[in-house]
Amino acid sequence: MGRIVLEKVTKKFEHVEVIPPLDLTIEEGEFTVFVGPSGCGKSTLLRLIAGLEDVTSGSICIDGRETTSLPPAQRGLAMVFQSYALYPHMTVRKNIAFPLKMAKMDQAEIDRRVTTAADVLNLTDYLDRRPGQLSGGQRQRVAIGRAIVREPSAFLFDEPLSNLDAALRVGMRLEISELHKRLKTTMIYVTHDQVEAMTMADKIVVLQAGFIEQVGSPLELYRAPCNRFVAGFIGSPKMNFIEGDEAAKQGAHAIGVRPEHIKVSATEGAWKGVISVSEHLGSDTFFHVHDTGLAETITVRVDGEVSFDHGDTVYLTPRDDMIHRFDANGLRI
């Protein structure tokens, strides 16, 4: 259950094409993440799959069933919204039971499912409270509870963690991953945060301006980004791009090196520069190196114990096997 196939899907608002023809297959049980900068069309794509928006052309099949023109309720999907979209006038119990009640399920079965879901999500003590009396993380769990009781063929998540604070976000990330491991249901997850994408996904779909830039597993995207956009978007800190002579030497229009693939030395190396800012995170240290004559700044990531400071002159050497080469159109060579 939960194989979703998009064929030549397009979407226009007024006369602006936000999704150009797009093909995508999401396999059964896969955790797929749509990632991209804001305005890239990832949420629109999710809403098209959900049925909250009409496609302008193309088709969407869920489990082999043509669903392009079905209303959201008949697609067998459940969605968790960015704002959680809980019903403020209903208790947690009623919130979770709402989709079952709409499906006219009998009361005993509703009670059983709500109890199970509450148990799984640690909400048992809060069942009779209203959303207004819950913390952000608890609300998030209620939203998830409302989604899982329906036993949908796929879950859709629309930036579900962006309203949580940093610490809670890491916790919920784990919970959602665990939930996926346990339920083995297809999940589609939209985020602008590449860390979420890298940590949770089986498959990442990188979008920009409605186009799919690349589809692949997190490590595929990390190791072999197919163009400069993906290369720059995946990985933190961002990949360094160098154009000009240094790139020409490699037979490319531009080369990219990730900060973690550059060696730093006080005495010798390929490029010489001056550290403008050093950020010590404990586990890692980031250097921002100026005056290399290659690019504005080169970011380098080294072990936490390396001690250089502002103003120090350093020599940088990229790892030969880790240099990404791009042509004038930004495509990988």
């Binding site: 608002f13 049925g51 909250l52 928006e53 009409d54 023109s69 209303p71």
Partner: peptide, 8 residues
């Protein structure tokens, strides 16, 4: 932003 269903 809406679907044909909701518009009709």
């Amino acid at each position: 932003m809406a679907t044909q269903h909701s518009r009709s």
